[in-house]
Design a protein around this nucleic acid. Structure first.
Length: 274
DNA sequence: AATACCGACAACCGCAATCCT
DNA sequence: GAGGATTGCGGTTGTCGGTAT
């Protein structure tokens, strides 16, 4: 393994990017496209290593990135996918095309993980040990969320006038593998989880369904659609706001028979499909 | 008002995978 | 096929702003 030489060079700047640096980077990528990162600092004069330039572009400057304000539906998806895939943030992010893996990872670490821990603790206090085991093994589906995540940083991709590409096409257009293979990744992840194995094959990206379609099928969200879920969220919000100490609707849902059926259905669908 | 503490998020680091010559 | 270069990924750390003391 050879590290990019520029990372060790004296004079390489670290820390937060300035708007001026962003503008330079954006301008260069507009002209040359998001590739050959090694040449970026050389040709732009940026005192950043190639890796830093790539990360800055990928996570913040790239067009079509949505930042902050995770919706309840997005939270649901993240939680489901994290349960299915583990900490495979890139794979998870590929199902939320407007979100970056870094953003999702941060959101998970700072919000969702704590939230789940809190709910589990609460559930534990209400349930017998055998009950909680069952619940903990189930997919910890949708959580009430009044997201406090708010970024003060504006998406500088607004600077990219007339260069926006449809989100759905951006992965392929940019030639990155992250989004292109997601269907296969999830499919194989599922297989790996069911059997034994490890490495997935990026070359086998040839699935009929779009990643979103596969996910919808996988999670059977049509039976638990956005409207009902959102309504539940609203109720949950009210419940929590009005009675902080009481059992939230989320917890109720977790313990509910209907939810139990849905969890079973989810697993069955998953097994059937893969 | 000053300081300590904490949470959120941006950025970095190291490794692995993939690409290219 | 080998080896170097490039890119992707996940874990971790650093920084900054808000809040508590």
């Amino acid at each position: 393994m050879v590290r990019p030489p520029c990372c060790d060079e004296v004079g390489i700047k670290k820390g937060p990017w300035t708007p001026e640096e962003d503008a330079v980077l954006i301008s260069y990528i507009q002209e040359h496209g998001p590739r050959n990162w090694r040449s970026v600092p050389i040709h732009t004069g940026l005192m950043r290593c190639s890796k830093s330039c790539r990360l800055r572009w990928t996570n913040y400057l790239r067009p079509g990135i949505k930042r902050g304000n995770f919706t309840p539906h997005e939270e649901k998806m993240i939680i489901h996918l994290q349960t299915l895939l583990g900490n495979r943030w890139a794979a998870i992010a590929s199902y939320l095309p407007q979100r970056t893996d870094n953003d999702i990872k941060n959101y998970w670490n700072t919000h969702l993980k704590k939230k789940i821990m809190k709910y589990r603790t609460t559930i534990d206090s209400y349930m017998t040990p055998s009950d909680t085991t069952t619940i903990h093994q189930a997919v910890p589906s949708f959580l009430h969320a009044s997201s406090t995540y708010a970024s003060s940083t504006e998406n500088i991709s607004r600077l990219l006038k007339d260069w926006m590409t449809p989100v759905a096409d951006s992965n392929g257009a940019n030639g990155t593998s992250a989004g292109a293979c997601t269907g296969t990744i999830l499919k194989q992840e599922a297989q790996e989880n069911m059997t034994v194995g490890n490495n997935y094959d990026h070359s086998a990206c040839n699935v009929a369904l779009s990643p979103q379609e596969q996910l919808d099928s996988l999670l059977s969200f049509e039976d638990w659609d956005n409207s009902s879920a959102d309504a539940a969220f609203d109720e949950s919000n009210q419940s929590i706001e009005s009675n902080e100490g009481s059992l939230s609707l989320f917890e109720t849902w977790l313990l509910d028979e209907t939810a139990e059926k849905m969890q079973g259905r989810l697993i069955e669908d998953w097994q059937q499909q893969y």
